[in-house]
Amino acid sequence: MADLALNGLSKHYGDFYAVRDVSLAIADGEFLVLLGPSGCGKTTTLRMVAGFIEPSAGEVRLGGQDVTLLPPWKRNAGMVFQSYALFPHMTVAQNVAFGLEMRKLGRVDIDQRVEETLALVRLDGFGGRLPRQLSGGQQQRVALARALAIRPDVLLLDEPLSNLDAKLRQEVRIEIRELQRQLGLTTVMVTHDQEEALTMADRLVVMNEGAVRQVGTQRDLYERPADRFVAGFVGRTTFLGGTVKAPGRFRSDGGLALACTGGRPGRAVLSLRPERAMVGRAALSGLDNSLPGTVEFVSYLGALIDIHVRLSPKDRLVVQIANRDGGFTPEVGQPVHVGWPASAGQIFNE
């Protein structure tokens, strides 16, 4: 295992920047997730680390060594592909042994390592099967075993769970994470699934349009998003457009006067997480903001209920409440009051 550093990494095709000036330091044994919408440059970044794409600028350092110009077969990076990319003409054991044969290990060592690695991913006894004889989940574990067998300096996961069904995905997330901790693997994973990112990562990198928008822990990203994009991409939020009149005073486009924290005077949006607001039959005392509104839509999610409240012709807010016994559950068309403390909202100047 080793640490990984990306310094000013860029990739452009003509005028189009797929990745722009990405610098990241991934500690030995850390699980880093690159998160972003499709086309944000996360996969290009991962492929530059793997050596499949040559960067236009910047460097990749693996374990202190500059590997920027090394071809993929000279880097010790284990990669798990979205399609698994198992060798269809080889058995499971031959797939796992491939990287070891390239490293010129002896037959006895190879057989032993293959057996160990297959046991690690709970596929003992499957060595003689062909990939097409396995289920999707098993194929995914073979892909993981093949990457782990070479004892890579860094493990690269390219949307490894996107081809699994929802229930299996939840199990495999935890399995991969536990294996990664147990082996102390430096890992970089690419995903567009924020739930997956949040459950697996030590640290997350949110990317958009080729650039890093924020690096931080789950809590950092959710509680203190760096910009409007991150606030909207990580978790759910309602944006109210408007103007900051003075620090702490926000006036929405619909004319609502709201208390907030900070902000520079000028055009801005107020971001409010649905679970941070409250809804009641009467005005809510003790909160900085309490506004009357009408329920327009109720979405029943089981444990949680989303309530969409119209506050003004131009302002609509989503409030999420827990589904508790005896709790107040408003109905569509009902007049209600919505409230939240000033500190719950976040201002992003434009």
Binding site: W73, M79, F87, A147
Partner: peptide
Amino acid sequence: AVEEAAFSLGAPPGTMFRRVLWPL
């Protein structure tokens, strides 16, 4: 991706061709 998998596992292009591309 199968070719890339071979590369990432340490196979130079010639070996990749012989072990993966040709048989497939």
